[in-house]
Nucleic acid binder design. Sequence first.
RNA 1: GUGGAUGUAGCUCAGUCGGCUAGAGCACCAGAUUGUGGUUCUGGGGGUCGCGGGUUCAAGUCCCGUCAUCCACCCCA
Length: 430
Amino acid sequence: MKIPPVKGTRDFYPQEMAVRNFIMEGWKAASIRNGFEEYDGPIFEHLKMYQIKSGQEIVEQLFHLTDRGGRELAIRPEITPTLARMVNQQINALPRPIKWFSIPRLCRAERPQKGRLREFFQWNVDIIDVDDPRADAEVIFTSIDFLRSTGLTTADIQAKISSRRLLAALLRSIGIDENKLESLYALLDKKAKLPCEAFEEMLAKEIPVKDQAERIRDLMEVTTIEDIPRIVHMNEAATAALDELKNVFSLLDLMGISDYCHFDMGIVRGLAYYTGMVFEVHATSGKLRAICGGGRFDNLLKDFGGPSIAATGMGMGDCVLEILLREKGLLTDSLATRMLDYYICCLDDELMSRAIVLTATLRQRGYVVDCVYKISSLGKQLKLASSTNARQSIILGQELIRDNQLVLKDMQSGNQRSIQYDHFLSDLSS
RNA sequence: GUGGAUGUAGCUCAGUCGGCUAGAGCACCAGAUUGUGGUUCUGGGGGUCGCGGGUUCAAGUCCCGUCAUCCACCCCA
């Protein structure tokens, strides 16, 4: 009986694994360059943990299970709650500020489609206990730093940045009631995807006061930070939030990535928990969903039963990123799945044990080595050597029996020479 | 949850009006080449035509059902 793979999952054959490693090694290197430490947690947690800040609908998109002790568990759909739990548990012992990154494997029981699967990897970086735009700018910088390292340019991607704190202050200044903010965020977040008329209609339903709705619409049309005060009266809170956001942009300029960064009033993020800067990185062309997103969420630790400590961070999934890299031709067609230092060819049955000894010796010295399993024609063995991307082949044949010599063949140039077995080994260690 | 498209070899696909033993390219294996790789040439293995039913002398092809996948919508931590 043939069992199919589970919907929304991927099999990583060596070729796909090479791509995955390419991405993850890039994530890891960018994290480390920017001063982050790696952490990880369990792949499942108590179901409750995901119900704290999410509604019933999100819980339905969890893979959940009941263990044999009757505990309700869920496979992690994100790692931020785990991060909050881990940090809260040791909050008094951990040196601060905390700059942590992780590359968790996550599962969500959603309907799969382009750029979205049920199992995926998501790079997360978070900075905790830095209540300063420096941390926000650094999170954005780290994302761009990685994307830039893959070869993506300002022509391919751009970071769209806004501030939830600013938006909240502006909406209050317009006169919007506090308890309307959340549903309004959801609508404003969708604006870019909706046709103009549909947005107007939904806005009118949400905000019946004509003057208010009009000013919100005008506000969402602004393309530069400087235009904002012309549309909305700047109270104290709005001015402070605006200065803070301007500060983020000047920091990004100092960091040398202002070409990648743009203010965009339409970046709201659906989630309720953002409290300050919010951003998304999008491909400039095509209709891909966001490559990454994040922002400041200063209530995170408090929501999970800890102290009130500032936090800012971002997440980047592997699915959309891979599609984009492929579209831009930035994934080498065949990333090598193996890269041997030596491939050992053996031409005589009586030499096979010496081939095994040589293989083991070289491996012990730290070389990447493989050895043929079956005696066959040299041509066939060299073909195998080529397919393993061996830099050099070592041929064990008559020379070894006669003169204790092996043949060393450089696979790139094709040049080869004979060398005394013992000299070969002693040359290696020098 | 809603709508659309597609299911033929490991992969990408062709298969005419329903008609002979179901094909190509790539990949894989072998030989040309018993001690010299990447190229080339030759050959080979590999199929429940998604599954079930129906129409017919005859179904990969037509009809009904079903399952799966992909795409879009909803949602998006």
